[in-house]
Amino acid sequence: MPHILDPLPQNNADDEICCCYVNSTSQIQVARITNVNNWYFERVVFPGQRLIFEAPIYGYLEIHTGMMASSILSDKIPCQQLIVLGGDDAHPFSIPAVSTELQYAAK
């Protein structure tokens, strides 16, 4: 998957996985990966939005939920639980078949 912003460091190329997170709440969330050296990943996820991204297999997606001036770390999900299932020829922006573990993220 081509990265326009903040590509993964080159030393992680072998450990990259395609992931999907769905914001099933009614609040705006901020998704952030902080445990990867030399890489910054942070995205706003609106209610009902699906976020598809690549991350190292050992990454953790932090979900911050809150109001205007404050946010709370509401979840920390291993990226392995957000893996998108599909063949090698599957297009990364097609509607993914997500693993059953994604239901964890949707709760």
Rank of each mutant, 00 (worst) to 15 (best):
G59R: 03
G87Q: 03
Y58M: 11
V45I: 13
Y21I: 07
G48Q: 04
C18L: 15
L73I: 08
P92W: 06
Y60T: 15
D88S: 15
R32A: 10
C18W: 15
A69P: 08
I57R: 11
G59E: 02
G87A: 04
L85W: 04
I33Y: 07
G48I: 04
A55G: 00
P92F: 02
Q27W: 06
N37E: 13
V45R: 01
S26I: 03
L61Y: 00
Y60F: 15
V45H: 04
S74F: 00
L51V: 04
G87I: 00
V44N: 05
E62G: 04
W39N: 04
I95V: 06
S71K: 09
L61I: 06
F46S: 07
C18H: 10
L85R: 11
A90E: 15
S26W: 02
V30A: 10
H91A: 09
S74A: 14
S70A: 13
S99P: 00
I72F: 12
G48Y: 03
L51E: 03
I72E: 13
E42K: 13
V45C: 04
F93W: 11
I57M: 09
Q81G: 03
S24P: 02
Y60P: 00
V30P: 03
P56Q: 11
R32C: 13
T25V: 09
W39R: 05
N38G: 06
P78A: 11
F93Y: 13
R50G: 03
V30K: 14
Y40C: 13
D75N: 14
R43E: 14
Y60I: 15
M67Q: 11
A55T: 08
I77R: 09
I52K: 12
I52P: 04
A97G: 06
E42F: 00
P47F: 09
P92L: 03
I28L: 10
I33W: 03
C20I: 01
H91L: 11
E62W: 04
W39A: 10
G48R: 07
Q29C: 11
S74P: 00
N35C: 03
T25N: 07
I57A: 12
V22C: 14
Y40G: 08
P47R: 01
S26F: 04
G86I: 02
G48D: 09
H91K: 12
C79P: 01
P78N: 10
L61S: 05
I72K: 13
A55L: 02
T34E: 14
I52H: 05
F93I: 01
L51K: 06
H91C: 05
K76C: 14
C20S: 15
I52N: 04
Q49Y: 01
Q80T: 15
C19T: 05
Y21P: 03
